[in-house]
Structure formats: C-alpha cells, structure tokens
Computed example of a mutant assay.
Amino acid sequence: MPVRKSAFVRPLLAITMVAASTLYAIAQKAPTPSRVRGTIERVDGDLLAVKSRSGEDFKLHMTGDTKIAGITKISLADVKVGSFIGTTTVPGPDGSQKAIEVHVFPESMRGTGEGSRPWDLRPKSTMTNATVSESVVGNDGHTLLVKYKGGEKKVVVPDQTPVVTYVPGDRNDVKPGAKLIAFVKQLPDGSFDANRIAVGRDGLTPPM
C-alpha cells in the first residue's frame, strides 16, 4: 500500500516550526551578564541589592572568597612608563584607539588579565591590560604605547579621560549609595555570586 508523502511532510514541518520558535526565543533572551555596574540600594548580611545603570535590579551574594577593592581618582600624570594599566578604548574616526577610562593597577596586581579583549562598557569597546612602554604628551592629550604578551596597542588618552587606581577595600566599603562594578556568576535561582567587587570611594563611579 503506498504511503502518502504528506504523512511525512506534515510532522516534519511541525517539528521544524517548533525548533525555529525555540531558536528565536533563545536569540531574543538577554545574555547573562558577567559584570554588574550600578548603585548599592540595600545590604542584608552577605546579600546586596543593586540597581544597575540601566535600571535593572540585581541580587549579589558576597562569599568568603569575594575580593573587595576601592577605586579612587588619580591624575593622568600618575601614569608612568612601566605602569601596569587597564584601559577601555573605542575606535576613533581616524582608526586610532581612544581611551574612555584608564585604571592603574597597584604593583600587587601586576599582570591581572593581561591582554586585549572585547568589553561591554560601550559598543565596540575593548579592554586592554598592559604595561606602558612609551608616553608622549601632545596638544590633545597623552598617547600611550602599551605592550602585553603577544601584542601592543597605541592609545590616545584625552585630557578629560577618567583615571583611577585600586586601593585595598573591605566590607565597610560595601554600603548603600556606593557605586560599584561587580564581576559575577549567575546562580540557578537567578541571583549572582560576586567574585570581585570594586567600589568607588567618596561617591566616585568606577569608570570601567
């Protein structure tokens, strides 16, 4: 007895439509953040309620292993040849890399995250952690040549660029009203473990 082609086509079409719908839903789902930037609204023991810069609410858990640092403002003149820095850059109209923030690591943090990678501060932004090998002062700010394992980058740092450094911190820095950037891992209940927290001192917003 011949089997009608439609007997196979209809189930296959239904499966295809379900799969397509599932893939579309996955594509539309917001990516899980690995960094949270915002303001601490409440502190309840080890749990932080944070309002992100975009208005989202996050619950962050501090653990016994959570590292806490303070962020303070310094001068661009404090960025010396030999300094190990991190800098977020965006492409300029002429193809140069323009810094939108610079943070200087203390000697104890030298080598942290060395290299260059995409960053989520702004569209097309990149984070580069590297050692300053040259510093040239020009009419429109500084130009830094930074070198890291496997590469180097020339970075233009306008005079108004925020420049900060890390200082030792503790849980006394983690208080309502403080601005932070937290490096996080999502838990099954939708909350997050905070592996590292950097808190701005004296109302400072961590620029990275």
Rank of each mutant, 00 (worst) to 15 (best):
K29N: 11
I85T: 05
A19K: 05
P33L: 01
S96H: 06
G70H: 02
M62E: 05
P33V: 00
V43N: 09
V43G: 09
A20Y: 11
L47V: 14
D46T: 11
G64W: 06
T39P: 00
G64D: 13
I71P: 00
I85K: 04
V90Q: 07
V79K: 02
P93G: 08
K98V: 15
R37I: 01
K98I: 15
G86Y: 03
A25Y: 10
T87S: 15
T63M: 08
K98C: 08
P33A: 05
Q28F: 08
D57Y: 07
G92A: 14
K29A: 15
P91Y: 05
V36T: 01
A19D: 07
A99H: 06
T39C: 02
F58P: 00
D57K: 11
L47C: 09
A77Q: 12
S52T: 12
K73I: 10
S83H: 04
S54N: 12
G45A: 06
G70C: 04
K80G: 01
I85R: 04
Q97S: 15
I71F: 03
Q97I: 02
A19M: 14
Q97M: 13
Q97N: 15
T39K: 13
K59L: 14
T89A: 06
T66F: 03
D94L: 11
V79Y: 03
P31T: 09
K59P: 00
R37Y: 04
R42S: 13
T66Q: 05
K98D: 13
I68F: 05
T39W: 04
S34N: 14
T88Q: 09
D94Y: 06
